[in-house]
């Protein structure tokens, strides 16, 4: 029995991988109690979007790689978001002495 591997990776494989990563990120974002883990889940979702952009750039727009330029901008915004998010987290931790998301409920109702 000869195992026949597919010759190329289809575009849909990358899209499915990005969907898995995005949905994992969404689940973690909703269910995490620890605020640092929420930030990590956001990073996972941003990476999923980047995988989509790069896959489309390679498969559908191979000459003018606009997807790669967009991915660079997404990486820039993600870096800024991580810095500001962690600063907010530190400030919250100093004020509430916890990182439990369930206890950050000052603005709830």
């Amino acid at each position: 029995m000869s195992l026949e591997l597919p010759t190329t990776v289809p575009l849909q494989a990358y899209l499915a991988l990005a969907a898995i990563l995005f949905c994992t990120g969404v689940w973690g974002l909703i269910n995490s109690r620890n605020a640092v883990r929420v930030l990590m889940s956001i990073e996972l979702m941003l990476n999923a979007v980047n995988i989509n952009l790069m896959a489309f750039s390679n498969y559908l727009d191979g000459q003018l790689i606009r997807g790669q330029v967009f991915a660079i901008f997404v990486i820039t915004v993600a870096a800024a978001e991580a810095a500001v998010g962690l600063a907010i987290l530190l400030s919250l931790y100093r004020n509430r002495e916890t990182v439990d998301m369930e206890r950050f409920n000052l603005l709830r109702w």
Binding site: V36, A82, L90, Y93
Partner: peptide, 11 residues
């Protein structure tokens, strides 16, 4: 940065 944040809020 995330590792530093974990270190700073490590309670």
């Amino acid at each position: 940065l995330i590792l530093f944040a974990i270190m700073l809020v490590n309670k």
